[in-house]
Design a protein around this nucleic acid. Structure first.
Lengths: 233, 233
DNA sequence: TTTAATATTTCTGTATGCAAAATGACAGAA
DNA sequence: TTCTGTCATTTTGCATACAGAAATATTAAA
């Protein structure tokens, strides 16, 4: 566990930003944060630099500011994730995937089925993340894998970062089932070596997340996560 | 210019890595670099963290190591750039570009023509970079713009990072002309609002860079830049 | 009152000190 | 030889000190 201090500061700050606990536009003062977290400014500074690299902070001539995202930018981030995941599965499909990996994919599909059947929401997100990461890894491209994971850190872009507990649970379940439909089609596209089909499917799959963002806004659930979205009222 | 110290360390180190002056696998010791550059370890550390974020360094439990790239990864990086630039021009084409921006694009095409005509190589790279950046900016997506620029920092992935002064100058000129052909087609695709055509063209355009890498290897020019590519002999 | 100039406080950027961890060398055992 | 455990050296991670820049408060003038 011997977690480095800057890492814990990084996780803490990142989750505070993405969750909307730290509002867009907030100026982050290293000395203040240091005192607050019981550390010195050095590891805090390291975390801030990394968050700047992730695009969550902006560094003006003096200090870091929490970035706020226009709604359009949230969609751009989601599309970016789809584009990168799409490129990954396209590459996987083109180069072909061994039978044991295909088996693992199909097994995960079955797990999805049973989770959705039982409306077992709490188990969905971790499995979904694992599935997306595994799909990406099949590209066997370090660079693509890294970029995909990077895109997950943009607000709302991660495959499991949409506000759960949607008010309209009927609609929610329908969205899950459509997603599951996509999952199955992508696996078949990979198995059939249909690269461009796999690409298109992943792009479209990511766009499901647009719906979730809209749903959250329309329902005015005012999920605190939406606090970092400009003009989202 | 009051350049911050960590920035100059960043530029210096990055160019040393990409140029191959610092070989892949080299361990970077902050204390040593600090003494070498006449600074303390703090700004050096900041530069190292940023380079890690750019994917040029790997951080193991103690210290940073220069990453070496397999040839396959260099191609992946080039393709990634094409993918991102492609997404940017697709977006630009779909949303439409105002006449004055189209005019600027066409004017740049003319400049390319005269540069290629006169084989004025030294002016080509800056104009090419400007052209690619301007194309990307037309997407008006902060996130895409940032990611495209990020991809430029990967080895050989930048639009102007291929080894100039190719031995076979005939072939070199032919490659420039093909690139210019692409440029013109992309501009027309944008003007005609043909998004997917623009996307495909940018992907293909990036692939020209594959040829340049191959040419450099085959000609065994042993451009020092190739030193960070594993098994490139 | 509003505005301009100035003083004060706060914070960042950088340097450096220190403890703990990692690396490497070397001696001895298998 | 090869492996292993100890010790010395190096280097990192974090804390802290300090100068200078930025932000803020304060005062003076219009």
């Amino acid at each position: 566990m011997s977690e480095l201090h800057w890492q814990s500061a990084l996780y803490q700050l990142r989750s505070q930003i993405i969750s909307g606990e730290l509002l867009g536009g907030t100026k982050l003062r290293a000395s203040h944060l240091a005192e607050e977290m019981g550390l010195s400014r050095t590891p805090i500074g390291e975390a801030l630099i990394k968050l700047e690299g992730e695009g969550l902070l902006i560094r003006d001539k003096s200090g870091f500011t929490v970035r706020s995202f226009a709604l359009e930018e949230v969609f751009d981030a989601i599309d970016l994730r789809g584009l990168l995941e799409g490129a990954a599965v396209q590459k996987a499909a083109q180069k072909g995937v061994c039978e044991s990996d295909l088996g693992k994919l199909r097994e995960m599909l079955l797990q999805f089925d049973s989770i959705i059947d039982q409306a077992n929401v709490s188990e969905y997100d971790p499995l979904n993340l694992e599935f997306h990461l595994f799909l990406t890894s099949l590209s066997e491209s370090e660079i693509l894998i890294a970029e995909v994971q990077r895109s997950y850190r943009l607000p709302f872009a991660g495959p499991s970062s949409f506000p759960t507990q949607q008010s309209d649970s009927e609609r929610f379940k329908a969205s899950l089932m459509l997603g599951q439909q996509h999952h199955g089609q992508v696996v078949s596209a990979i198995a059939n070596r249909e690269g461009s089909r796999a690409f298109a499917l992943m792009c479209e799959h990511a766009r499901l997340a647009h719906q979730n963002v809209y749903a959250a806004i329309e329902a005015r659930e005012r999920s605190p996560q939406l606090a970092l979205v400009k003009n989202a009222g």
